[in-house]
Design a protein around this nucleic acid. Structure first.
Lengths: 162, 162
DNA sequence: TATTGTTATACTCTATAACTATA
DNA sequence: TATAGTTATAGAGTATAACAATA
């Protein structure tokens, strides 16, 4: 097993996996399974968020800026593993739609703190329902306790410093 | 919880996750954790495979065509969740390097069966060692039994028909 | 009529480097 | 001297549609 195989994430459906390949070495490769599971979850999530004019990324920024954390753009970039320049584009777009605001950080005048507006918080509330429903379909074959276990194990990989 | 948040996968390092955001709603979102874990595993895997002139995708094709399955391009596309036209490019490149061959499928003359050459099998053998080492580092915080559990849970999401 | 592989193209995402203003 | 945000651009990846050969 092992590797780090990846896989694309077309929005179009490639529903089934060919029989013969299921027995291949890749099917025991955690990185491959991670990639394929992610591609499926991402496609489902993007489809569900589209009705709110969001994608997984813009939804993520909206969630993160709707809480108490008041992240800077650099913090958003690190947490989402995006390049800072990509965060500029994301925040530009959300700001132009009136969903987030850039506020100067009083402690560091180089930094922008990004906060969701009331409209942004309202939208993310609706989007969250769609996202939840999509995730429910993706994880339909897992019990509630399986999902909790999966989350715990993934957290260990996703945040290695712990 | 829930959603379908995604995350990029830059090859450059964004090592740490900002403290404040760890407490946010996204950290309990399985789709977000899936995306972030995948981004980390993919970056590590691509870095490890680079010394063999491979990426996760071309490595995957090489693994799948090195076994007994003798997949067609369409089967590769479905299994890897790629568009058929992307498989054309991947196979073109591997074929030009003498690592795989297209063979006519005797049962269906429209289809190409893709098989690794001896050189391809030799390379994938070496690459597998690098990939394994990279995956070991990514999953260093998980026990052997945790990794098996993770693989089982991911397989359920990655191959929903089961 | 439908499917496999292919080509072409437009679009999005990713990687890099430079620049500014602050620290 | 280093960091946050920004801009620009080149490259990689993705989505779509069309076509020839075959089923």
């Amino acid at each position: 097993m092992s590797s780090t195989t990846i896989v694309g994430m077309p929005d179009t459906a490639h529903p089934i996996a060919p029989e013969g390949l299921r027995a291949s070495a890749l099917s025991d490769d955690v990185s491959f399974l991670l990639a394929r599971a992610n591609a499926i979850a991402l496609a489902a999530g993007n489809a569900a968020l589209a009705e709110h004019g969001l994608k997984a990324r813009s939804y993520s920024v909206l969630v993160l800026t709707s809480g108490e954390a008041r992240p800077s753009q650099r913090e958003l970039a690190e947490f989402l593993r995006l390049d800072p320049s990509q965060v500029v584009s994301l925040v530009d777009e959300l700001q132009s739609r009136g969903l987030v605001e850039r506020k100067p950080d009083p402690a560091d005048r180089r930094a922008n703190v990004v906060v969701a507006t009331d409209a942004g918080r309202a939208l993310v509330g609706q989007a969250r329902e769609s996202a939840r429903a999509a995730e429910e379909r993706v994880h339909a074959d897992l019990s509630e306790s399986d999902r909790a276990t999966l989350a715990t194990l993934l957290r260990t990989v996703a945040f290695p410093s712990d």
